[in-house]
């Protein structure tokens, strides 16, 4: 099983392989079809954010394991000019419908954890994580089997 996938982003055409890679990795890690779609959608948004704000950057997607749970972490980084007023940009529906401001708050709702670091000098890094929803259920199921 692959544990890390890197996708360079330098134009809107790169969103297509980024979504496909993200979905494939999520499925390999055992995420449900629905969760894989939510993850691919969130990836699409943060990758577009790179294209719009910084022109180029990179996505790194990594499968992680903690006691009792599996997750997928996606880090999107660029060396662009940063996003001014990031807190406002993350607020639900702060922007007009035609602007690109819906992407980040949307991606945040699709994932379990979501963090943005942005700086005019260093660029922007978005780190987002989704945990496999089935792990808690499987743990309970395994315990039931043990007892039976």
């Amino acid at each position: 099983m692959r544990h890390e996938v890197r996708v360079p982003i330098s134009s809107d055409a790169d969103l297509v392989p980024a979504r496909a890679e993200g979905r494939a990795l999520a499925r390999e890690l055992g995420f449900s079809q629905t969760d894989a779609t939510l993850i691919a959608t969130a990836i699409s948004e943060i990758a577009r954010n790179i294209v719009v704000h910084a022109r180029s950057g990179e996505l790194v997607m990594t499968g992680i394991q903690q006691p009792h749970r599996y997750g997928l972490v996606i880090v999107a980084s660029d060396a662009g000019p940063g996003i001014p007023e990031i807190d406002t940009a993350l607020e639900r529906g702060h922007t007009s419908r035609r602007s690109l401001g819906l992407g980040l708050p949307g991606a945040r709702r699709l994932m379990d954890e979501f963090e943005v670091e942005t700086d005019a000098a260093k660029g922007t890094t978005v780190t987002m994580t989704k945990w496999r929803a089935r792990d808690e259920l499987e743990r309970l199921r395994a315990r039931r089997r043990e007892r039976a």
Partner: peptide, 15 residues
């Protein structure tokens, strides 16, 4: 529109 795609779409604050 597939079920999982629909679930993702309604997460955005789109009209």
């Amino acid at each position: 529109i597939e079920p999982d795609v629909a679930i993702a779409m309604v997460q955005f604050d789109l009209d």
